[in-house]
Design a protein around this nucleic acid. Sequence first.
RNA 1: GGGCUCAUAGUUCAGCGGCUAGAACGUCUCCUUUACACGGAGAAGGUCACCGGUUCGAUUCCGGUUGGGCCCACCA
Length: 811
Amino acid sequence: MEIPERYDSKEAEPRWQKHWEEHGIFKFDASDTRRECFSVDTPPPTISGKVHLGHAYSYSQQDFIVRFQRMLGKNIFYPFGTDNNGVATERLVEKMKKVSARNMPREAFIQLCSETVEKELKPEYVQDMKRMGMSFDFSLFYDTIDTHARRISQRSFIELYKKGREYRKDAPAMWCPQCRTGISQVECEDKEVDSFFNDIVFKVQHKDGRAEDVVIATTRPELLPACVAVMFNPEDSRYQKFKGMDVAVPLFGQTVKAIADKRVSLEKGTGIVMCCTFGDQTDMEWQKAYALPIKTAIGPDGKMTSVAGKYEGKTVHEARKEMLAELKAAGLLLAQKAIKHAVKVHERCGTEIEILKTKQWFIQYLDLREEMLEWGQKLNWYPPHMRHRYEHWVNGLQWDWMISRQRFFGVPFPVWYCKECEGVILANESDLPVDPLKHQAPVSACPKCGCVSFVPESDVMDTWATSSLTPLISTELVKDPEMRKKLFPMSLRPQAHDIITFWLFNTVVKSRLHFGVNPWKDCVISGHAQDPHGRKMSKSKGNVVEPQAMIAKYSADALRFWAAGSRLGEDLPFQEKDLVTGEKFATKLWNAARFSFLHLADYKDEKMKLELVDRWLLSKLSRIVTDATAHFNSYEYSKTKSDTEAFFWRVFCDNYLEMVKDRLYNPQQRGIEARRSAQYGLYHALLTVVKLMAPITPHITEEVYQRFYAAHEGKKSVHIAAWPTAGTVDEDAERVGDFLLEAVEHMRRAKSEKKVSLKTPVKKMFLKGKISTEEFSEILPELKSVTQAGEVEYERLPESAETAFICDLEL
RNA sequence: GGGCUCAUAGUUCAGCGGCUAGAACGUCUCCUUUACACGGAGAAGGUCACCGGUUCGAUUCCGGUUGGGCCCACCA
């Protein structure tokens, strides 16, 4: 058998990827309703250019699991989706094409986004995924903005509306005055700014008509016209006397109540604070808790409204400056203290966000907190502690789920409003997907008031409103309803820990609201790839590593081998040197295979009585198979990898191969049966190692499998070969074989200390141990050939002896 | 501020109520040996973060402290 000396991963990996694709190795069989299915709710990545190392890390980990399940013989449903819905794509396209969504026709911008995604971003991204060796069935493909996903997303909206779970109302929401849209938390970032604490005098009005000054510190004096209350901590002895009193706001003169609330810090500022609608999150909570009026001083364009009186039309900064001047002139500005503090800005444009009352759509779920906790408990979490993050999030929920955005490239709400009564008119389900801006409402007159003109909803849904439907979007790619029942609820949700509160939580909520069941049985939470110092990789820090470059320099197998090196859920710092280990593993496997195949050319798979050393090896291997299978079943791929690697390197290569050489090379002395027994051990041990490692390093294992085993085993790929089953554990063989190993190691140490070659013959060897003389005779030929010993003497020690191994050597 | 998590060799990680605490990479010494020098054999390298507790015995279990990381909240 001609086998090249070197394994060239750069040539081999793309070749096998092509082979898998051409032979449909990863294809889901939609017609096979008898086989057990394993359905995976794949995370659809946002395509913002290339695959990131963080993706390579966590996607590799889910691929280990899927490949293992495939080898168990299951019908694997492993679709691939992308999430190009929403502001992330808009931002990228604006940057790439140097356009601004606000300055071009809506339709043209949407078109540009679609085309850029389809023609420029997606092909490269998919190629990256394939190059990593991902075993997706790429024929099961979706995008959260495609027609299929839009239809399902709109259908979900309509169903939840009909269930009474959705409402539209004026509510405070974060708003970017620059981009003029409501935005979500994920779209904000903190920015350190220089500012001032301004000590401003308010007047407390006592019952007897007396007025008392109270000093309130604020960084945002322009919100004085929006002040609706002043707050202090109930524990604060300085202000308790003011409780329930009226307070006059300077410059604008409105009278507000003084309210005690424990959310006020005793230390910050002067300990008494103004509540404005709305300066921050706490203001929203207070407004709601005390049913305070809402006074909107800042408009959607970032300018002061008529509430600000003569300041109307001025910008926030102009108004701030002018009000401070006026306060100072009136002697109401006591002091200004320079501070640095963090403000929330829109990550896209750096504009400070405002909280404005706008009309938004919400999914009502705050009433379901107890149920949410139960749903979380019914999921199988791997690792289990990840459930705490879900629970922590649920316990901290303050608001219903806001799903509308004033953006463009998203799924439209399938809704029109009656011009007269503002009644909601829903699209017909059979017409989905619709765009109300382009399509007519499905009724000719409002069913409530008979009005015949309608206003289309121009908002789009937030991306999470759609991506929380991936179990539906993916399983509905399958047409057969019987098969769909086998796929949903899905077997597995793999994802990283940072989006438990977003994607995982939202998906559970939607599935429960629609179907009353959890969307999956198990969820596997992976960690993050970090930079070499254990910090998060991010473009702004400039510490991002591109997996494509690493694959080109090393191999996909090397990258995957690295990704298999940490415990499930743990973050792993990336150091380039760690990729060398995976490369070395592939080389070692290649060379071990070359040796094995050289001696297996005449191999026949027949049952026979095995020699002790072979039984020793296969018994050790049986233990590895048992453990590896158990670990993989609980998604602990890293343990499978480390156990298998240790067995392969330490036991199989370093020792077993040395022990069988004499029998393989010299059948004339050792006998043909002895050689055949060694062949049996070689064949099965190597094949088992190849299979155990196949999910982790799919390319080198495929190469080895195809070079020899495919012809014997009759499978088109190792990845659809049967996962190994454990053989018998032979404790006697292990005991005797371990004694042999101890003797060999003793000899090696002695030769190394004497700084001589391992080939140097041993003149005499005196051994004492607890194995029987018959047992010793079974390992004597191996002992002699491996150690190059001439004369060997053995003495059996009594069971009561303190040591079980004594060895003297004469070199 | 809250939640979770981690702390073991120079580095990245395993591990375990009791052996001499392991692996890989790195360092040093030796060995061309018929699968592999992209290799092999061997060595050096650890107060298992710190302080208490439980225990015959703790690196391991419990409590606390310190430090790192991620997420969430706050930021008048």
